[in-house]
Amino acid sequence: MKASDQYRRLAQRIRGYAVKMTNCRSSGHVGSSLSMADIVAVLYGRILRVDPANPRWPERDRFILSKGHAAAGLYGALVEKGFFPKEWIDTYYGDDGRLCGHISHHVPGAEFSTGSLGHGLPVAAGMALVAKRQKRNYRIFCLMSDGDCNEGSTWEAIMFAAQHRFDNLTAIVDANRIQALGKVSDIIDMEPFARKVEAFGWAAREIDGHDVEQIEKTLLAVPFRKGRPSFVIARTVKGKGVKSIENTVGSHYRCIPDEKLKEVYEELGVSDAFPV
């Protein structure tokens, strides 16, 4: 199988897990999990140097999911990589469960707990600082949401990382253009996003966040410029892969109901892995 086909397959399975987990407990954020699935698939399929047998391997790349509400979109990748047993998936959000609704460092493979926006990038910058000062080779990737970029603390970290030329740090925005109460363009329009972060001293690229080949090529190219942190604005579709909820604010809150599950798994092409 071609690498790109493998990424697509992994991405669809990540979507399957996200649909399954959120359905089980009628929890939210399925749209946010679906939009980032292709990015996460390429990260775990190729980019990140991690060892599922040794999740705290000192030389691992650090991956911080700052949009912690999309944990359901990361757990699938971690389970597919073998960080924890598949049975845990069924305990998502449940009584005495192993997996909570926002990402937690108590889950093997999850670097850092988030859930309140604007926390990921400052911590990632701290890790980048140590790598630079102690001449360590690990790299730091931070996946953020549109809403993350409303937070002042994110911009504090953007300024700080540029000041200290952390070119071992890559921020990726899953720019699905919809935040909690509506369209990004109606709430806090980030545009011209790339020019903004370039003006803040980062090297920015805009890509199609569902084109796995483009994601791979872009992430293999970091740092885009020596001495500058890299910023990837990945244009995505909220709820991507499930037509009935794509581009809807509601996908931030509602899960796929039982009666639609079979149809959705077929749409994602993962019916074999997710029998109803």
Partner: peptide
């Protein structure tokens, strides 16, 4: 100088950066 950082007037980032530094086995 290698272990001293003034992040500017930005206490949230100060604390987040300190946390990241500490997560890597240091005392911030």
């Amino acid at each position: 100088p290698d272990r001293f950082f003034n992040v500017g007037v930005a206490e949230q980032n100060m604390t987040g950066v300190a946390c990241g530094v500490a997560m890597e086995g240091n005392i911030a």
